[in-house]
Simulated assay, not measured.
Amino acid sequence: MDERGLHQLIGTIIDPERLEDDCAVIPCGDRLMVASTDMLHETTDFPIGMTGWQMGWMATAVTLSDVASMGAAPGEVLLAVGLDTPERLRGIMEGARDCCTRFGAELVGGDLDAHQELTIVSTGLGLVAPEHLVRRRGARPGDVIAVTGPLGEAEAALAGYDRHVKELLEPQPRVREGQALGRAGVSGMMDISDGLALSLHDLLAVNDCGFAVDTARLPLPAGVPEDEGRELALYGGGDFELLFTAPPDILPVPGVEAHVIGEVIPERTVLADGEPLERRGYLHEWKG
């Protein structure tokens, strides 16, 4: 059983449409509030050697990336930290604060307790005008499929390509790009922190169409052999780029680096170079 499978259980308890996007959407006056929560554990999410500052930065960036994927402007971030040793707190909080400052959010509070394993839970809030909200559902046949930057860089760092270590340890959520794409009228969007292939299957689950990508058009990690880079770009996690669909005539969007990698097709399938693309990427799994 993996985390996507458990969503089916959650969908029997709350409205399953609430589970379709990177954030919950809540009416807030004449705008919409988006809200996301992410949990990171040291043994599964923080590579060995990360500083406390980088852990705080990453925990915040994960949540701000979700807010960006909805086309929203970030507002507030709350951080709950389960500490194994209290000496680590300052670095974590300073990293979270600095990430908020860099991307226009504010760290406003959270919670503390004692854990055997360092655990950080980040909650992010953002606001967006209803006409600029972008959901995962909305792709239409004939739309192009695009991403905002190179894929596979974080995974390349884990594979020993040290030139990509900063992308792994200090990810940059595409906050400005998400808002620009929302204003431009893209039809669907999500972040791809769990890998491109898995993200395309996530889009398939909520749309009445399919997705066909041309792997020759993927923006690959620099300095990695092409075949290995293509594998990392398809299945590697931790990139925090945005994956979006859009009518071809709205591109390019000013100020947004966009790489067109395929097109939306009528058939409900995910294809790479004309063949079915394996549903594989970064997933939390339970054995047995």
Rank of each mutant, 00 (worst) to 15 (best):
S187H: 11
A156F: 05
H41G: 13
T245A: 02
G160Y: 11
V256G: 14
E42W: 09
T269Q: 12
E226H: 08
A146G: 13
K287C: 06
D194F: 14
E94I: 11
E20H: 13
L158M: 15
R280Q: 13
D21L: 04
E228C: 11
A80K: 13
G188T: 00
E106Y: 07
D2Y: 08
L198H: 07
E285D: 10
T245D: 00
T60S: 13
L251R: 11
V25T: 10
E106T: 15
F211Y: 12
Y235A: 04
A216I: 03
Q54G: 07
L198V: 14
E155W: 05
T245Q: 00
V270S: 08
R268L: 02
M33N: 09
D21Y: 07
W53V: 10
G182Y: 05
A184D: 05
P150L: 05
P150C: 12
A258N: 01
L40A: 13
V121E: 14
L218E: 11
G91S: 15
R18L: 15
M55E: 06
L277Y: 01
A129F: 02
P276E: 07
H41D: 05
L220S: 06
Q54S: 13
Q179C: 03
L151T: 04
L79D: 03
D202Y: 04
V77E: 06
T269C: 11
D208F: 08
L127A: 02
T43N: 10
A129Y: 02
V206R: 09
Q54R: 09
T60E: 10
